Amino acid sequence: MFYICTTMKRIINLFSNKYFLSASIFLAWMLFFDRNDLMSQYDYRTELKKLQEEKDFYTKETELVKKTLSELTTDQTKLEKFAREKYLMKKENEDVYVIIPEKEIEK
């Protein structure tokens, strides 16, 4: 019983200490109420990660487009193939038939 009483007195003294109270209030403020609290930091980290993934994706896409552009400007046969496939261009005496698979029509 004596041990419990001294322990309770120590806890009460700890909570009545002005430095402990100040530090506790400051810590609670920084963790929960500040503009840069824990939840905000977590949200910022997840947004940063998402933006990094988007940056990597667009960097790869840009490199692919540059490579395709380089191939199209140097090789006439690839340019003709690209124009026929993407823009359905044709020569004067040709007919072009576009075949669309049924799976794409259903979508």
Rank of each mutant, 00 (worst) to 15 (best):
R45A: 15
K49G: 01
L64C: 05
L48R: 04
L51A: 05
L69H: 09
D75P: 01
V65A: 08
T74V: 14
L48Y: 13
E61Q: 07
E53N: 12
D56V: 12
K55Y: 08
K50A: 08
L48F: 13
T62A: 08
T59P: 00
E61K: 12
E71A: 06
T73G: 03
T46K: 06
L51N: 05
E47Y: 11
L72G: 02
L72W: 02
Q76E: 05
K67Q: 12
E53K: 12
F82H: 04
K60M: 10
E80S: 08
T74K: 08
S70R: 15
F82M: 06
D75E: 08
K78P: 00
S70T: 13
F57N: 06
T73H: 11
L72H: 05
E61F: 04
T68L: 13
T46I: 15
T74Q: 12
Q76H: 05
D56W: 00
E61T: 06
E63S: 15
K67R: 13
R84N: 05
T74D: 03
K50N: 07
E71C: 02
F82W: 11
T59H: 04
V65H: 12
L51T: 02
D56H: 04
D75W: 01
F57A: 07
T68V: 14
L79Y: 04
A83Q: 13
E54L: 05
D75F: 02
K78G: 02
T59S: 15
T68F: 14
L48Q: 07
T46W: 15
T74R: 14
E63Y: 12
A83H: 06
Y58E: 05
R84K: 15
F82C: 09
E53T: 07
K50L: 12
F57I: 11
E80N: 14
V65W: 10
T62D: 03
L64M: 09
K78Y: 03
A83L: 15
E54A: 04
R84S: 03
E47N: 08
F57W: 10
E80W: 05
Q52L: 03
K50R: 07
T59K: 11
L48T: 03
